[in-house]
Design a protein around this nucleic acid. Sequence first.
DNA 1: TAATGATATAGATCCTCTCTATGGAAGTCT
DNA 2: AGACTTCCATAGAGAGGATCTATATCATTA
Lengths: 298, 298
Amino acid sequence: MMNMEWYRIFLHTAKLGNLTKAAHELHITQPSVSYAIKQLEAELGVKLFDRMSKGVALTTEGSALLEYVEKSFSFIDAGENKIRSLRELTAGELRIGANGPVIKHLLLPVLDQFHAEHPDVRIRLTQGKTSDIRNRLKEGRIDLGLVHLPLLDDDLNVDHLLAIQDCFVVGQAYRSLTKQSISTEDMIKIPLLLLSQESSTRAFVEQWLSSQGLHSEVDIELSSLDMLTEFAQRGYGAAFVTHSFVQDLLEQGKLFALQTREPIPTRSVGIATRRVGSLTLIANRFKEMLTADLNTNL
Amino acid sequence: MMNMEWYRIFLHTAKLGNLTKAAHELHITQPSVSYAIKQLEAELGVKLFDRMSKGVALTTEGSALLEYVEKSFSFIDAGENKIRSLRELTAGELRIGANGPVIKHLLLPVLDQFHAEHPDVRIRLTQGKTSDIRNRLKEGRIDLGLVHLPLLDDDLNVDHLLAIQDCFVVGQAYRSLTKQSISTEDMIKIPLLLLSQESSTRAFVEQWLSSQGLHSEVDIELSSLDMLTEFAQRGYGAAFVTHSFVQDLLEQGKLFALQTREPIPTRSVGIATRRVGSLTLIANRFKEMLTADLNTNL
DNA sequence: TAATGATATAGATCCTCTCTATGGAAGTCT
DNA sequence: AGACTTCCATAGAGAGGATCTATATCATTA
């Protein structure tokens, strides 16, 4: 049976025209090269080299073979280089999905760091709701998703990343209500500003309310955090938002958090990946970076 | 060190997605495949397959590698096919050189036979004088030349192919001279029709004459056998030609051979090849055919 | 003719691949 | 749930081929 190693030896020998030099280059001895060439010639049934007084010279048939063998090995070389690049994270891509606020407040700083360290990695970022991200993950269109927990899916693996605390915020108009704690019943008398129906945040707040036997009439339903805070600032009502995502506005005195008597449970943001198969080296690295970063920023 | 055989095993495994099946296809056992994949992964420093419950699946990195490995092996396959074709004489080319009369009267019949047996071999035929053929051979532009002997050249190997007998022929006008033998001295009183200066045939006839202390004034100097016989037929004089090449015209009574009292020595046509290096399989085959053919046609 | 620089060959050795046997994990079918 | 099947991993033994050392051989060159 044909042995691919013989081709490697053939290639070096053909290029150098000298068994002894080829042996040197391959870190083997001259008889080994002689043996390999002989095997190859026997197996192919064709003489590949003319043995000259000072070295060897390709026969016509040998030359014909060389063309192919050269190309073959150049592809192997290219493949090994590609693998090296992937291993050293100087090639490949990172495909992530997350929702808007998470991208802006959690992902972006880490992404900056990642991009600085691995500028050759192409970053493909998709914005979407947790449910979108789940689908994209399962379809293999992204490698890694940042999602709100709980996310139950047999195909996905979800690691807790960090806990977030939600709260209701209001603008100057309702500032008086923030002086002391407020019951949930009283609170929902204020017009509520919530994210649109399908979001997991909306599901969360509605579940919290219903656990207290309450139900809210939503007054204003928006699809982005920025708009929610904008409306809240202008006094349209109380917006349900993640505390740390509006930190700046709270500090600037543009928004004020209500102190709900009934505490709002914390919830988690997690990293979701496919359960089957393994992460790309890149995604792995990024995941490490995410967890490391958020642990130092505690 | 990287072993090319591992790539072969990788390729089969990747395509089948199943170590056991790959082992079957490669006529080895499943643990061998398992081992090879493991070695390759270790050497590349990258996991190539995810081990699933029912088989294996390429990782992203494995897929990247596969692209290259596929191409690499397809070139090896192509190379092996090419060699097979060359071995079976269903590819490649035959490059021959010979002078006009030899092509017409010696080469053509054998070439017909060769072409019938090996229609896929491209035939490159160059017409030229013996000296041209020698140069082309030495430059590697042809593989095989049919030349007049003697041809002395350290770089070339010349095998005797067949002996030819030259003669002087005349047309109807001089027919009377062919009734009985004629002395060389008398003969050169007839106008002589010879090939042009540089041809080896011309050199041969002049050497024959001068060996008898004679010298000829050439009357008509032409560069092709056909023209020589044409002029001879029309009674312009005696043409020096190879007997077997004008056999037909002699039989048809269009030409008549002089019986020279001093016999014209036979000379030889030979096959010339480069001394260094080896013949292509094709040229070898053709050479065999030439010698075989001319031995049966004795 | 000796020296040089090649390749070829012989025989011993060692390494690596392959094998057999077995274990273990994940799914599948009663 | 338990038996079965399918597939991969591991361990250890064994064989065979690639490699090594030593030497022969051949052609060229000084």
